[in-house]
Design a protein around this nucleic acid. Structure first.
Lengths: 242, 242
DNA sequence: CAGTGGTCTAGACCACCGG
DNA sequence: CGGTGGTCTAGACCACTGT
């Protein structure tokens, strides 16, 4: 007997795919309500229960947000609740506060080996690099570099970053139509070199948390690679294992 | 108008509570199958769909595992798939391999302020402390201390730890009936002090990843507090943001 | 009040597993 | 083949939101 590949796909997953298409194509925009379950059931010619199960999965994937009595909405990085999902830094004592971003630099370059591999693009393809500092009450806590495919983030420049109030993923979403859906982070402990030590106001050789992230959009396509160094003297990185 | 507390609890959540009771009481044991959906529907006098939704949530919470065609099983730390859920260390290059645990010491003590707070027990209540080294191909990677409430882990000793093959949560589950359900980790970067540097075979002052964990059992009751120091020269801590 | 998502039911049928 | 979980449907009713 041969082992056939799992060729079966339930109806609600096919509906889910169609809905992802509608999201990806921009038919339904971040922050807006999608059609009601009834309307979708008619549109896709299935029962409401089947639409429901598709939406359930999309909500679990953080692509949609359900609000009883109001409707189902496209998740948006403009929503402050989405913030902590991607920056899990917490003060040792006190409440969670959004860090203030200060762009230092933003320039064009060609993808090196590492950037090309992480972004799944050609070697020497155009990329954009951002250097930032994140501050908590005017104390620098994080310094990072963000590598973006030039093909997608064409017009990005430092003025845009400076003018933007809110998370950088909110900027990517509203100005470039790029929605970060999930990410994978690799954490290590490293020593501060001289220049980083100066930027963060710590001693040279001080231990820092190194966080390397690849973020993905629809179809698990990588669209951002970043490396950050976190000063964990007065903050920690919180992770829920569940 | 006053804002009444959310007094409404859907039927499937009540069923879920009853099922959690059955799990907590030991009526259904780790690794074993629970009754079929039909049987549960009869037992609880609800429809199969309602039982189904309760099980769905319990499976999402990692308390149960569904296996089509076979049944629904109580999740167990004996299952190797459960391993990576709680130890997210990965070699820089190469496959994920379970680290080998070497207990160094295991002794009784009284809870200090920090232990008491983290374990939600009285100051000076009896606790048990374990010191371990975790090795990858005979190279020490992690050194940690585990703090356990003495009341729950009465007979624990170092011979038990040495004899046990498998994860320590597997031991807790099968010997003490304590099931770790979720945990919260705080990560920071620190410098190796002399004694730790010696144990891990790194230079004094080398950067290490500090991982402090509180693990919880039924009813969000904390039952373990541990602090680990990870050498991240050849490993990283992997985290999925989704 | 109308419209939305949320719950609950009952029944039919399908995919998977093991004997 | 029988038993399990998985899918799909149709309909009734409930809880929440805004007008």
């Amino acid at each position: 007997m041969v082992n056939l590949p799992p060729t079966f796909s339930p109806l609600y997953r096919q509906i889910k795919s169609l809905m992802i298409q509608a999201l990806e194509s921009g038919e339904w925009r971040p922050g807006q309500a999608i059609p009601s379950e009834q309307e979708l059931a008619v549109r896709f010619q299935v029962s409401q229960g089947t639409v429901r199960k598709a939406i359930d999965e999309l909500a679990a994937d953080n692509l949609l947000v359900r609000r009883q009595g109001k409707g189902t909405f496209v998740a948006s990085h403009a929503d402050p609740r989405a913030l902590f999902r991607f920056l899990r830094l917490t003060p040792l004592s006190g409440e969670i506060v959004a860090l203030k971003s200060e762009p230092l630099d933003c320039w064009r370059a060609k993808a090196g080996q590492e950037a090309a591999r992480n972004l799944s693009i050609e070697l020497s393809a155009p990329i954009i690099i951002i250097r930032r500092v994140l501050k908590h009450e005017s104390k620098p806590i994080v310094v990072d570099e963000i590598y973006l495919p030039g093909e997608i983030f064409g017009g990005l420049n430092i003025e845009m970053l400076r003018d933007w109030q809110g998370s950088i993923y909110g900027l990517f979403e509203s100005r470039f139509g790029v929605r970060m859906l999930h990410a994978r982070e690799k954490l290590r402990a490293v020593s501060a070199d001289r220049s980083v030590a100066e930027t963060l106001g710590v001693a040279e050789g001080a231990p820092l948390l190194s966080v390397e992230r690849v973020a993905y959009t629809y179809g698990d396509k990588p669209v951002e690679w970043r490396r950050g160094l976190y000063s964990t003297a007065e903050h920690y990185y919180l992770n829920e294992l569940s």
